[in-house]
Amino acid sequence: MKTQTSATNRDADSTPRVQLVDVPEDRAGQRLDNFLSGRLKGVPKSLIYRICRTGEVRVNGGRVKPDYRLNAGDKVRVPPVRVAERGPAEAPSDNQVGRVEASIIHEDREFLVIDKPAGVASHGGSGVSFGAIELMRAARPRDTLELAHRLDRDTSGVLVLTRKRSALTALQAAIREGRVEKRYMALIEGNLPKARLMVDAPLRKSVLQGGERMVRVDPEGKESRSHFSEVERYAGASLVEVALETGRTHQIRVHAQHLGHPLAGDEKYGDRAFNKAMREHGLKRLFLHAARFEFEIGERSYSFSAPLPPELAAVIDTLQQRRTSTPR
C-alpha cells in the first residue's frame, strides 16, 4: 500500500500527521468508514463519522459521505486523529461473547453467519460499546471477520460475516447489483388490501435537532422497493413476509407506515394504540425478523435462514387463538 505523509522524519516524531493513502485493489468496494476504522485503530466510529462530516477526510480531493464505496486507486486524505490516553481497552463480558457465539448458524472458510439477537447492534458506535462484529471478533480472535451487511439493533435474524476479503467484496458486489434475496417476517397493524403488493416509494434520511435519525418517504429520496406478502391474518393484525429489492435504512418500517399498516412494537414509526394492544399479547420488542438471506457467488449458491425467535413465536401463538379468518 502506498502511503505519503505531509512531513518527513516520522520515526523521530510520533505526532500524528495527515496521510494520503492510495486504495489498493483488494479494498475496492469497501465503505469509507470501514476503511478508516481499519487504519485508525481504536478510534470510535462516532469520531470517524465526525471527521467525514467536517470534511477532514477527503477522497480524490473532494468531500464524500462515510458510506461512500471506494475504488481502487482512490486517494484518501486521512487526518491526524488523537485518541485520549486510556488504560487497557474494556473487553466484552463472557456472557456477551457467549450469547452471540451461541447464535452461529453456519460457518465455512469464507462465511460466518449468525442469527443475531434483537437488542444487539451490528457494530459498535453511537453509545454502543460492542456490536455483533466486535463480539464475534472477541470469540474468534484468529479470524479476519468483516460485516457483509447490517441489521438494525432491534431487528433479529440472519447476519452474514465474512472470513476472507475476497468473500466480502464478492458479496458486497452481489448486494449492489441486486443479486441477493433478503426476506423478513413482520407483524403489521390491520390487513393488507391485497394478499401481495409492492411499495415503490423513495426514502430520504434526515437527522432531527436532538440527533435522532429519521427516514421518510420523499420524492427526492433514494429509490426503494419492498414486496409485502400476507402469511396469516388475525384480529387487527397480520403476519407478512417482506422481500427487499433495495436495502435502505428503516425501509420496511417506513414502507409499512406509508401503507397505513405500521409494524408492531415500532416505537419510532408505529402506532401507539396498536403497540399497546400487542404488548397485551406479550410483545416486548419490534416485530421484525430477518428470516432468509440467499445469494450466488460464481457457481456456488448460499441460503441461510433463521426461524422466528421464541419471544415472537409466542406472540403469534396468542394471536392465533383469537384468529378470525384463515390465510388467503
Rank of each mutant, 00 (worst) to 15 (best):
I105S: 03
A290D: 06
A173V: 07
I51G: 04
S325Y: 08
G210F: 08
E107G: 01
L288Y: 11
R150S: 03
A28R: 13
V18M: 06
D74K: 09
K116H: 06
V78W: 03
S93H: 06
Y234M: 01
T246N: 02
P193S: 15
G247I: 05
H261Y: 14
P66W: 12
L286R: 10
Y68W: 03
G119H: 09
R50F: 10
A237L: 12
H281W: 03
L36N: 02
A7M: 02
P66Q: 13
E296C: 10
P310T: 15
V207D: 07
R328G: 14
K41V: 02
L40G: 05
H261W: 13
P327M: 05
G61I: 08
T162S: 05
E146A: 08
G221Q: 11
G124A: 11
E90H: 09
R248M: 05
D266M: 04
P307W: 07
A118V: 14
K182Q: 06
S14H: 10
A72G: 00
Q209R: 09
H281T: 05
R10H: 00
R213C: 02
Q251R: 11
L112S: 01
H250C: 10
R300N: 13
L208F: 03
Q30E: 07
V180Q: 13
H258S: 10
V128G: 08
R77E: 04
R183T: 14
K182T: 07
V43H: 06
L47Y: 01
G61H: 02
V59Y: 04
T169L: 10
D33A: 09
E296R: 12
P66I: 15
L159G: 07
G265Y: 09
R31W: 07
V23A: 13
E177G: 12
G210L: 09
R204N: 14
D271N: 01
V231A: 06
A167R: 03
P141Q: 15
S93D: 07
E230W: 02
G38V: 14
V199I: 03
M136Y: 03
E189I: 11
V160R: 00
A84I: 11
V18L: 05
A132W: 00
